[in-house]
């Protein structure tokens, strides 16, 4: 076994999965609050462009990430206004968000096509990165990979250990009861949508800042939708989102290596794998008993006070 190849494959799986981790967590926090946001794809691409434009202008990585999250949050606030204030249908509003985001990014990003963002330096973790094979595979990554895992930990802690997290889950499980108890359903959901938008924006920016330091129109290529499927796959638990994202990342990397190793099938068959695996995962999860309990009770339902 070629250990050098193995460690670089694991390394690239983590790189391929990180956008899905961020976007999946962004969808998760909204869904735990009862908000179904199908606009993740649009939020991601706008974040991708915002992060890229900031990096090209010469700002450091931290500023690029902040701008990407800001762009995601701002676009998500349109969704929040429509769904929470104007009682718009959330499914259709999410789709509109995706269309609008893709179009806006293509329109504003046309001037950036062909430019390259500066390379992001890896953070070698002292000592651990020196371990043979494992060190290169797991402990010499760009800071965003570590941040994605840290974010999952924070969200897990927030949802299960903090009082505010408990309120958020109550709003997601049964908004009528939460409202009766005096919690602000709209306020909680607004904050969840803003945070989710920011996370999706960061996930998108990982594509342009680390994966390929370029911006191309429509480059999210369905990752926002896979992130939504991941949340179902993870039965709405943060750490399972990471596990799921790494599984999907592995599939896409295996597909790339299959092409490199000269697997004699048309590349399109291999490119179908992530989508087919997603469908398979959705079926397995949905058919397992007890999933109906896992989904937040008020997910995707419109909240109106006067009823």
């Amino acid at each position: 076994m070629d250990y050098g190849l193995l460690s670089s494959i694991i390394h690239s799986i983590l790189v391929a999965s990180t956008p899905l981790v961020f976007a999946g967590l962004g969808a998760l926090i909204q869904e735990r609050a009862g908000v179904l946001n199908l606009g993740i794809e649009g939020l991601m691409i706008v974040g991708a462009l915002a992060g890229f434009a900031t990096a090209v202008a010469g700002f450091p990585l931290l500023v690029s990430i902040l701008m990407a999250s800001l762009a995601g949050a701002m676009l998500a606030s349109i969704f929040a206004l429509l769904v929470l204030r104007l009682y718009a249908n959330p499914v259709a509003t999410g789709l509109a968000l995706t269309l609008f985001g893709l179009g806006l990014a293509a329109l504003a990003g046309s001037q950036y096509v062909g430019q390259a963002a500066p390379q992001v330096a890896a953070w070698e973790i002292p000592f651990l990165s020196q371990i043979p094979v494992v060190g290169r595979a797991l402990f010499s990554h760009d800071p965003l990979v570590y941040l994605s895992i840290f974010t999952a930990f924070v969200i897990w802690w927030f949802l299960t250990k903090s009082r505010t997290g408990l309120i958020l889950r109550a709003v997601g499980e049964n908004h009528t009861s939460a409202h009766a108890l005096g919690f602000s359903v709209r306020g909680v959901r607004f904050l969840a949508i803003i945070c989710g938008g920011a996370l999706a924006g960061i996930g998108g920016s990982y594509l342009t800042l680390v994966q390929t330091p370029l911006f191309v129109e429509g480059m999210t290529a369905g990752r926002g939708w896979i992130a939504l499927a991941l949340v179902v796959f993870a039965s709405w638990r943060p750490f399972r989102v990471i596990a799921g994202a790494y599984l999907f990342g592995s599939v896409s990397i295996i597909q790339l290596h299959g092409q490199a190793l000269g697997v004699s099938v048309a590349s399109q068959w291999l490119s179908m794998l992530p989508y087919v695996v997603t469908i398979g995962a959705l079926v397995v999860i949905a058919s397992r008993a007890g999933t109906s309990q896992a989904a937040p009770g008020s997910l995707g339902k419109i909240f109106k006070e006067s009823r």
Partner: peptide, 14 residues
């Protein structure tokens, strides 16, 4: 860019 069509369509749906 022709992608501005999508901006128009997204706005209309909003």
């Amino acid at each position: 860019p022709a992608a501005s069509t999508q901006v128009f369509q997204g706005l209309l749906l909003f």
